[in-house]
């Protein structure tokens, strides 16, 4: 991760992004990747829990909740798209 990179934790509710890299704890990163959070995947932040953490993201037509700490290890690039996600969100 380089300085200036933005992560999933930096996105606001409703913003979409494309995953660049999945870092952090190896086991957690593996699990996230196995659930389809991979470089190239489109994700959107749907909501934040009432107490500020965790966040819910939507990808590949399903909802996933992760803590900010995990979200901060996922490097992304913002994308303009904000409509519904296409069925195959693993665009490369």
């Amino acid at each position: 991760m380089n300085a200036g990179d933005i992560t999933l934790a930096d996105l606001g509710v409703g913003e979409s992004a494309e995953v660049r890299a999945v870092g952090g704890d190896r086991g957690v990163a593996r699990r996230l990747m196995e659930m389809g959070v991979l470089p190239g995947t489109l994700v959107r932040v749907v909501r934040v829990a009432p107490l500020g953490d965790p966040v819910e993201i939507r990808l590949r037509r399903y909802g996933l909740s992760i803590r900010r700490a995990e979200a901060a290890a996922i490097v992304v690039t913002r994308s303009a798209e904000s409509g519904p996600l296409p069925s195959t969100a693993g665009a490369r």
Binding site: D25, M35, P54, G63, S65, I66, R67, E70
Partner: peptide, 11 residues
């Protein structure tokens, strides 16, 4: 153990 991570599907 490692701080338990939360990777939770919201069905």
């Amino acid at each position: 153990g490692p701080r338990p991570a939360l990777v939770l599907e919201l069905p």
